[in-house]
Design a protein around this nucleic acid. Structure first.
Lengths: 349, 349
DNA sequence: GTGAAAGCGCTAACAC
DNA sequence: GTGTTAGCGCTTTCAC
């Protein structure tokens, strides 16, 4: 893997093809207005020399990089075990590929990583950034703003920064939650409980809000806090059953939580959905379809969210205007795009 | 996220601080030999202007990028669901961070991605690459070689390319397998079977070789092919039991395979380890500890492998010599580094 | 249509 | 110690 051999430059190709650097540049960049014969000669020289443009030199003058950073906090390798993230990334990847842009994944594990990522972004390696602002107090949003890189967020960011020109893509967490709870109510359930997600994430906050929209009168005994994990779901479900043995429905903040809740319900001898109906959120295939019984849940199009994030970013870049400037354009797309959710009926409600 | 404001340049900082560009450069790069007073003035100017060095310009002259690419084939989002990969990545990440180098994860989903990744690597964005050569026929190794970037491989690459200066880090798959099988033999087992991994990966090939080293006389009826998944393990185990109902031990090519095998053994009424002893490979905590009974398995230090890969690459870069050149140096570290494995005794053997 | 020349922002000799 | 200067490899006016 040695090959410290000096790469050929534009100059070398020009010499070999017997043309000027300008002409080679035109051919390499697919510009028009170069006579076919010449273009062919240039292409052959490129081929023979194995010429590859030096991106640093190119970026220095064009200020474009054809690369987009995806910044993800990676606490405890979670990013890699979370199918949610993988799906979103796949959507992003597809869109960027179509645009011939390179995806650069930047992981942050700790505070010291933040500085490095900040430098990387500000240093002009990428045209823009896609950021998952996982928590309300996440330093990432501030960091990318300071880096001055066009950015689109995945999930509504907390109001940590005062600006309202933040571009983000989110699911209709609140609306989806409402639909779930209404469905439960429509089934005739009257004592509907909610197991929340970690309330330092807007998605969890919004789902709780949706629950409250429909059950404004729900007492605190019907709400238990989870953390988006099965373990959290189990704990919360036990709490709920202890406080409220006669509950007849549960809206869990996500599928994993619901899976944990189902386990506890079975363990306590409650039949699902006869005694207690359950609805989840996410519709992660490996989870929702595998629960026993299969989970009724709110589906969000995670891959679509990823794709849309990338599209918004690229669109902004193409216009030569940062995404944040959308609102000032005539078409005026909203700064935040919220994707609809759909209720998927399976066996638990 | 607007901020199309032009970034300040070295020039601007120099002007503000009333010094030359060279001096600013020295201060910014932490060089010695700048009088404190001046350095302080420069630092203030940097601060006030919010100056961040333009990496493209810097790389253009230094030919360094302080970034390393990790190239991973991502078939079916597998990379993200595989704890093995996550662990390795964590090791890499730690080492790079310590060296103040940025990790850039390049995912490839299809053939068209390969060309883009090739361009990215050859385009001079990174100082080196860490590549997981998953399969024997993987195009990635050839691709990075053509890109001419110093590279270290994770796992022994197949002999697809004729060069022997390939640097790689691997576990002692063969030795570990031998130890596993010897342990089984030491238990007095005489009909020891093996469930292989996918034989287009060298790790699977090597583990099979280790098995054969100890049981050269094992007939083909004692070997079944798996694919490193629980499902494959189940299928292979059924085959083995059908062909060879009296087998008394199984060496599975990895933990997931072993987990599948255990399920089938239970289903068929075989007691583990009394009737059939089982040993796995990997010691992935979430898998090996959770099987019923807990799995005896061969542990490999995956995070350590990742760390070592990064270290080898960085060491080569620091010397100004590509890793492949190690063999020509006096210290002469081997091109391939093989990490030892250890047998972890739990309940299945 | 093609070439010449002027930089993009930075570092590294080399003078002073 | 500090400044001056010459590029790194490329794109892009602007002449021809």
């Amino acid at each position: 893997m040695t090959e410290t051999a000096p790469r050929p430059t534009l100059e070398a190709v020009a010499a070999r093809a017997g043309v000027s650097r300008a002409t080679v540049s035109r051919v390499v960049n697919g510009a028009h207005g170069v006579r076919d014969a010449l273009a062919e000669r240039v292409r052959r020289a490129v081929e023979e020399l194995g010429y590859v443009p030096n991106q640093a030199a190119r970026s220095l003058v064009t200020r474009r990089h054809d690369a987009v950073a995806v910044v993800a906090a990676e606490p405890e390798t979670r990013v890699f075990t979370d199918p949610y993230f993988a799906q979103q990334l796949r959507g992003i990847s597809k869109e960027l590929t179509a645009h011939d842009s390179q995806l650069v994944l930047l992981l942050t594990e700790g505070r010291e990583d933040h500085a490095r990522v900040g430098r990387y972004l500000a240093g002009g390696h990428v045209d823009g950034a896609l950021v998952f602002s996982l928590h309300l107090d996440d330093p990432l949003p501030g960091l990318v703003r300071r880096a001055g890189v066009p950015t689109v967020f995945g999930g509504r960011p907390g109001w940590d920064d005062g600006r309202d020109d933040v571009v983000y893509v989110d699911s209709d967490n609140r609306g989806g939650a409402r639909e779930a709870v209404r469905h439960l109510a429509g089934l005739g359930r009257t004592r509907i409980a909610h197991i929340t997600g970690p309330l330092d994430q807007t998605s969890a906050v919004d789902r709780l809000a949706g629950f409250r929209d429909v059950r404004a009168d729900a007492g605190p005994e019907l709400i238990a806090h989870g953390d988006f994990t099965p373990g959290g779901g189990e704990r919360a479900m036990r709490e709920l059953l202890d406080r409220c043995p006669d509950l007849d429905a549960v809206f869990a903040a996500n599928d994993l939580t619901a899976a944990g809740a189902l386990r506890v319900l079975r363990e306590r001898g409650r039949r699902v959905p006869d005694d207690v109906a359950v609805v989840g959120f996410d519709d992660m295939p490996p989870v929702a379809e595998q629960t026993d019984p299969p989970l009724t849940t709110v589906r969000q199009d995670v891959e679509g969210m990823g794709r849309l994030m990338a599209r918004l970013l690229l669109r902004g870049l193409d216009r030569g205007t940062a995404p944040g400037d959308f609102r000032t354009t005539t078409t005026d797309p909203p700064a935040g795009v919220v994707l609809p959710t759909t209720l998927v009926h399976r066996a638990t409600a």
